[in-house]
Design a protein around this nucleic acid. Sequence first.
DNA 1: GATTTTACATACATTCATGTATGTTTATAA
DNA 2: TTATAAACATACATGAATGTATGTAAAATC
Lengths: 212, 212
Amino acid sequence: MVRKTKEEAEKTRADIIRAAREVFHEHGVVRCSLEKIAKAAGVTRGAIYWHFADKAELFFAMREDVFAPMIERTDALLYDPATLNPLDAIEASVTEFFRVLNESPVVRETFEIMISRCEYVDEFATIEEEVGRPAWEFLDKIERIYRLAAEKGLLRAGIAPEEAARDTWAFTSGLLHLTLGCRRGTGLEQEIPVMIRNHMALRRAATVTPEI
Amino acid sequence: MVRKTKEEAEKTRADIIRAAREVFHEHGVVRCSLEKIAKAAGVTRGAIYWHFADKAELFFAMREDVFAPMIERTDALLYDPATLNPLDAIEASVTEFFRVLNESPVVRETFEIMISRCEYVDEFATIEEEVGRPAWEFLDKIERIYRLAAEKGLLRAGIAPEEAARDTWAFTSGLLHLTLGCRRGTGLEQEIPVMIRNHMALRRAATVTPEI
DNA sequence: GATTTTACATACATTCATGTATGTTTATAA
DNA sequence: TTATAAACATACATGAATGTATGTAAAATC
């Protein structure tokens, strides 16, 4: 059999993306061949060229597969109307991001590929812009939220919202790179929630702890 | 003429490293060919294979060329006995790091290559460990310094030295990745010293500002 | 001054990856 | 029911890139 139904074709596409992730992660995006990906997916290169124009497009599809739900998920926490303190929203969103990152191998592998297994040159140079965009959007988002917190008097006195936003932005990005770059087992993963909590605590306005 | 004097050979080696940096930066470490580097250096592949075993060794030599002086430079500020407040030492060291990064094209290109133009797989997987090592050593260094600051009562009350170290560590790493990842001209570079200053200011113990 | 290396250049063999062109079968629409 | 086109597999042409083997001329050594 050669011609498949639409569902079967979709499964083939998904198989290719899954195989691409595995092979990209093990051998690098530029270095690996489409032949290797095809074999890992149980198809031939013909199938890959049917579903994707080239390796760059396959890479982008693989990324989108993970990125879109991830952003949706963290944004939901960032903008959750039930959260009264905006700083709690930031803390919850960032914490959730790293929780998923550490618990989902697919997500983790995808980020590892993007950060340390891809050369952003030539056709991939334009992709770098795309890959980096969420980070820049995150800066805008938390800046607005920090401003909100400031208006509510929940941001520590003496800290400007823009300043807090850039600091948290750098902190988050650094945490991401360091936790991915490190060999597993240094125990950094367990510390992350505490680090985030401490980071945010520094920015919270002093409150009177209620006596019981 | 074929056989060169030792100084000429050293110049050839330096030329190759310089060319490698250019080509790595433009076309990626894995993707580019040694032929391209050879041409950019005005030699043949024979010369490269004479001076270096393979591309990985050339990459490593290029990195070391920039890394070693950089670490020496920042460590000098970090451990400067003339600096009374340890937090000043951290601030000076980090600020200097980013100053050099932004003012020296060679340094900047080298970091850009290591961060976004190299796939750390196969032979390069071991190199990743080396590339990441300074970051981990930096964590140890500033942790000790923050502890010193705490002993002197210069660290803000309520912050543990280890906690401060990890936070600054992530902040610095994030700043590096964000400033390199961004297209030039967003003006982030100018903001960096201020960001560092603000970051450190948050960690300084409250002092009585002397009245004049 | 003869010999040995050094510091490369040149040539060669091999391997591999890409893109496209061309089948081939079958779901699907008419 | 037949024509069309989807969903691939196969085959081919092409173009690198790598590593090594070999050549070679001048510097260094003796």
